[in-house]
């Protein structure tokens, strides 16, 4: 039990990284990875939303959806949207600077497919409450890790004499691809011992 929780965490963090292996949540991945500080904070906000979503998804799965399975998608989306609203209000109140820096990408966490993906994966893998929470923290931390690494690389690439034809999105896609290539090294990690 203990060991499998560790495995769930590292699996979501590195091996099946939502961004670099499943290619989920790419809009904020490219949108907010321009600066390391902003990337880190968006990552933390995403972890928070993921944990709440995981908790609510477990509640829904346990108490509501057995009676009304057709409500799954719509109820998940409602939960995510309201969590994001809550985070938005909290950040606006606590850190107006960050609120401006995140801009449109904060409400866009709502439509971040990584979060809906988390709720759906958690359901299809049959994780319980604790496993689901660990999975959410791992997935969120993995998203944050990818985002911060990407931000660091992009800040470095800003100083480079990138050919005009590749500058911008094309270069970012190339960097993301190379990063994903590097993450392939984690394939199969801990699978024999878990």
């Amino acid at each position: 039990m203990d060991k499998s929780l560790v495995w769930i965490f590292f699996s979501a963090l590195l091996i099946n990284n939502f961004t670099l292996s499943y290619f989920l949540g790419l809009c904020p991945f490219f949108g907010v990875s321009g600066r390391i500080a902003t990337a880190l904070r968006l990552g933390l906000a995403t972890i928070f939303v993921m944990v709440i979503t995981s908790l609510c998804a477990w509640l829904l799965n346990t108490f509501v959806l057995p009676y009304a399975p057709y409500l799954r998608l719509i109820s998940f989306i409602v939960v995510i949207a309201s969590t994001v609203q809550f985070v938005e209000m909290a950040i606006k109140k606590l850190s107006p600077g960050l609120f401006r820096a995140l801009g449109i990408f904060l409400p866009l966490i709502t439509t971040n497919c990584a979060i809906l993906g988390l709720a759906l994966f958690q359901t299809s893998k049959g994780y319980g409450l604790l496993a689901g929470l660990v999975y959410a923290v791992g997935a969120g931390a993995g998203f944050t890790l990818a985002l911060v690494l990407m931000a660091g690389l992009r800040e470095e690439a800003e100083l480079a004499k990138v050919p005009a034809i590749i500058r911008g999105t094309a270069l970012n896609l190339i960097i993301a691809g190379l990063l994903s290539l590097a993450f392939m090294g984690f394939a199969g990690l801990f699978s024999s011992s878990a």
Partner: peptide, 9 residues
Amino acid sequence: LLMNAASPL
């Protein structure tokens, strides 16, 4: 490669 990626950080 992974540490190359972490190198700016």
